[in-house]
């Protein structure tokens, strides 16, 4: 993955609607690179077909409006 440079940081910040002054961009790039370097360690894992560790429960709670009609 390309190392983010200050120009890239500026462009990404614009997309993210964050203002990052030019004098901060080198430090921000270094921090982003830290995350990307660690993320690259995951490339060695056999993750094809592995489900992500997130679970959405579609059932409605009493607060959300479960009522007598739910009994069908």
């Amino acid at each position: 993955m390309p190392i983010p440079d200050e120009t890239t940081i500026g462009a990404l910040a614009s997309v993210a609607r964050i203002e990052i002054p030019e004098e901060r961009r080198a430090a921000v790039a270094a921090r982003l690179q830290e995350l990307l370097d660690l993320a690259a360690e995951l490339d060695a894992l056999p993750l094809d077909g592995v489900p992500p560790a997130m679970r959405y429960d579609p059932s409605w709670t009493a607060e959300e409006g479960e009522d007598e009609r739910a009994a069908g």
Partner: peptide, 11 residues
């Protein structure tokens, strides 16, 4: 990377 980390978490 975040989505991959969530997969990695399961593994």
């Amino acid at each position: 990377p975040y989505l991959r980390a969530l997969q990695a978490r399961t593994y």
